[in-house]
C-alpha cells in the first residue's frame, strides 16, 4: 500500500505499467524492483491458490476416481455439468438461494437502515447494531443446528403455527420437498440482513447532514429523501453488500451439508456441495473439478457485473 502510483500499476500488468509512466526516468529498473516487492505475496498466492486452480482446470478434463489411473475425457465433464439434470438443478438452486441470500437482505437492510438511521441518537444504538450483526459472527455449524431445531416437527416454527391455529400448515420444513430450499434460503436471509444493515448504516453515517437538511427545506418527504439522497449515496455499500451476499449464496456448502445433505431427494443440492460430494464420496474427481470451474466462472462473472454498480473511484 505504500507503493506509489506507477509502481502499483506495474504490479497489475508490467507492460501497461511502463506505458502509463512514460515521463519517469529508467522505468525498466523501477518495474524490476517492483517485482521484488510483489514476489513474496505472489509466490504464496501461486503456491497455495494459483497452482491448485490450474490443477483443478486440468483435472476437469479427465475421468478420475482420485486413486487409480485417469483417462482423458475431453470436455465431457463440462457437458455433464449442463446436461445432468441433477447438476443443472444444483445451479438453479444456487440461483434461488441468491434471491434469499442477496436480494432480500439488501432490500430489507435498506428499509431497516432508513428507519434506524432516524434513531441514531439513541444511546443503546451500538448494542442493537451488535445484536443485528451477531449472526455473522456465529459459526455456521451452530447456526445450522439452531435452525434444524426451529424447523423440526416440534420446533419453534411449528409451535408458533399451532399456537395461532395454523396446525394444518405445520410440517418438518427441512424434510419437505417444496419448502426445504426456501427454508435454507430464509436462514441465509436472516444471516445476511445484519451484514447489510451494518454496511448501510455506516454508509448513511457518511452522508453530509446538510444534504438532508436541504432536502427537508425543499419540502421533500421521507420517501423522497430516501430515493433522492440515501439510495444514490449508498451505491458503493450496496455493491459491496451484493458482492458478499451473492458470493455467499453461490458457495453455500456448510448450511446444506449440515441440514439436509442435498435432500430431500435433490431438492437442496447446490454446486459447492455437489463438487465436494462428487470428489470425495462418489469418486468423480474430474466432474467435481468441472463443477468447481463452472462455479468459479459464474462467481467471477457476477462479481464483475455487480462491481459496475459501484461508483468509480476516479469519478
Amino acid at each position: 500500500m505504500t507503493l506509489h502510483q506507477p509502481e502499483q500499476r506495474a504490479v497489475t500488468g508490467p507492460g501497461e505499467g511502463q506505458a502509463a509512466a512514460p515521463a519517469r526516468r529508467r522505468p525498466a529498473r523501477r518495474s524490476g524492483k517492483a517485482y521484488l516487492y510483489v514476489a513474496p505475496a505472489f509466490l504464496v498466492f501461486a503456491a497455495f491458490l494459483g497452482a491448485p486452480v490450474v490443477q483443478t482446470v486440468q483435472y476437469s478434463f479427465y475421468d478420475w476416481d482420485g486413486l487409480g489411473r485417469s483417462t482423458a475425457a475431453g470436455v465431457s465433464n463440462y457437458v455433464s455439468v449442463f446436461t445432468d439434470e441433477r447438476l443443472r438443478d444444483s445451479f438453479v438452486h444456487a440461483g434461488v438461494l441468491m434471491l434469499f441470500y442477496a436480494a432480500a437482505p439488501v432490500v430489507v437492510g435498506l428499509f431497516l437502515s432508513a428507519l434506524i438511521s432516524r434513531a441514531h441518537a439513541m444511546r443503546s444504538m451500538s448494542f442493537f447494531r451488535t445484536v443485528l450483526f451477531l449472526p455473522q459472527v456465529i459459526a455456521t455449524v451452530v447456526i445450522a443446528t439452531i435452525w434444524i431445531s426451529i424447523y423440526s416437527q416440534d420446533g419453534l416454527l411449528n409451535q408458533t403455527l399451532r399456537l395461532v391455529g395454523l396446525d394444518s400448515l405445520s410440517r418438518v420444513w427441512l424434510g419437505d420437498h417444496t419448502f426445504a430450499l426456501i427454508a435454507i434460503g430464509l436462514v441465509g436471509t436472516w444471516l445476511n440482513i445484519g451484514l447489510c444493515l451494518v454496511l448501510f448504516l455506516s454508509g448513511i453515517g457518511n452522508i453530509a447532514p446538510e444534504l438532508f437538511e436541504a432536502a427537508r427545506l425543499d419540502g421533500a418527504g421521507r420517501a423522497r429523501e430516501f430515493v433522492a439522497i440515501t439510495l444514490p449515496s449508498l451505491r458503493g455499500q450496496i455493491a459491496v453488500a451484493l458482492t458478499l451476499t451473492v458470493v455467499s449464496a453461490l458457495k453455500t456448502f456448510d448450511l446444506v451439508f449440515i441440514t439436509t445433505r442435498g435432500g430431500p431427494g435433490n431438492a437442496t443440492s447446490v454446486p459447492a456441495f455437489e463438487a465436494y460430494n462428487r470428489a470425495f464420496n462418489t469418486g468423480q474427481v474430474g466432474l467435481a473439478s468441472a463443477i468447481a470451474v463452472v462455479l468459479t466462472v459464474v462467481i467471477v462473472a457476477l462479481t464483475v457485473s455487480i462491481s459496475r454498480i459501484a461508483p468509480r473511484e476516479s469519478e
Binding site: 482446470v57 486440468q58 489411473r69
Partner: peptide
Amino acid sequence: VAAAGVVLSMSACAPG
C-alpha cells in the same frame, strides 16, 4: 488459467 490447465492436461502428466 484455462490455457495452463488445458496444456497440462494435454501433456503427459495425467492425474493419478
